[in-house]
Every structure is written in structure tokens, then in C-alpha cells.
């Protein structure tokens, strides 16, 4: 091959290549590599934050589950307590009611008893009074007729019925 004017090619290649190198470095490589780097960084950051968010989400989920579990346990405990309380209240109420009822019955009984005693006492008093009155009347008729007196007493007694 014939080398036409090698000095020309040496000269122009050197000049053009060096000029191209500096021009492209300024115009292209710096902005392009910068933009690529920037985007890579932002993608990495986005991935990292997504990973973080995922982890947080997981933590949150775990937390939620834990809280739910705790709440359930608490609820169960509360229900149990409530049930126990209900039972105890019911039994207590029952006992009290029983006691009250017995008491009332007792009172009623004693009242009835006392009324009965009082009534009997009154009857006794009245009987006594009546007896006195009868005796008085008998006494008076006695004074007139003996038979009549007896008859009167019998009548009187018949009249009075207990």
C-alpha cells in the first residue's frame, strides 16, 4: 500500500483526535456519565427505600398481629371476668333474695303469730267481758227465777260461739 502524505495524517489525526477527546469530554461524556450515575444512584436509593418500606411493612404487620393477638387475649379475659362477675352477681342476688324472702316470711309468720296472739287475747278479753255480762244477766234473772236463770245461761252460752 502506498502511504500518501503520512505527515498529513499524523498531523490531522493527532489534532482531530485530541480536539474530539476534549470536546466530547466536555459536551458528552461528563453529562452522560453524570446522568447515568445519577440515575443509577436514584434507582439504588429507590430500591433501598422500597426494601426499607417492605421491612417496615413487615414489622408493622407483625406488630398488628401481635396487637391483635393481645387484644383477643384481653377480650377473652374480659369476657371470662364478665361471665364470672355475672355468675357471682347472680348467685349473690339469689342468696340475698333468698335471705330476704326468708326474712319476710319469718316476719310475716311472726306478725301472724303476734296477730293471732293478740286476736286470741282480745277474744279472751271479750269472752271474759261477755262472761261477765252473762254472769251479770244471769245474776239478775237468778234473782227472779232459778230455772230461768239456768235457761238463760245456756242460751247465752249457745249464743256465744267461738
Amino acid at each position: 500500500m502506498n502511504l500518501v502524505a503520512p505527515e498529513s495524517l499524523v498531523f490531522w489525526t493527532t489534532i482531530i483526535f485530541v480536539a474530539l477527546l476534549f470536546l466530547l469530554k466536555k459536551v458528552a461524556w461528563k453529562p452522560i456519565l453524570g446522568a447515568v450515575k445519577e440515575r443509577e444512584d436514584s434507582i439504588n436509593e429507590a430500591l433501598k427505600s422500597a426494601e426499607n418500606a417492605r421491612k417496615e411493612m413487615q414489622n408493622l404487620n407483625a406488630d398488628n398481629l401481635r396487637i391483635l393477638k393481645e387484644a383477643r387475649i384481653e377480650r377473652d379475659a374480659m369476657l371470662k371476668e364478665a361471665r364470672e362477675m355475672k355468675e357471682s352477681i347472680i348467685t349473690e342476688a339469689k342468696g340475698e333474695a333468698q335471705a330476704q324472702a326468708t326474712k319476710v316470711i319469718e316476719q310475716a309468720k311472726s306478725a301472724i303469730e303476734s296477730e293471732k296472739h293478740a286476736a286470741i287475747a282480745e277474744i279472751k278479753n271479750q269472752v271474759a267481758e261477755l262472761s261477765l255480762k252473762i254472769a251479770e244477766k244471769v245474776m239478775r234473772s237468778e234473782l227472779s227465777d232459778k230455772n230461768k236463770q239456768i235457761k238463760l245461761v245456756e242460751d247465752m252460752l249457745q249464743e256465744v260461739k267461738l
Binding site: V4, A5, E7, S8, L9, F11, W12, T13, I16, A19, L20, L23, L24, V27, A28, W29, I32
Partner: peptide, 24 residues
Amino acid sequence: LDFSITKNVFSMLMSAIILILLFS
């Protein structure tokens, strides 16, 4: 001494211009 713009120099200049246009 020959510093002519030969065929090769011409196409080198052309490629340099294409590269600059493309990458800018």
C-alpha cells in the same frame, strides 16, 4: 511537507462531527 486534507482526513473530520452531533 504535505498537510493536505486527504480523503482519510476528510472522512475523519466527518466522523468527528457525527460523533459530536450524536453525543451532544
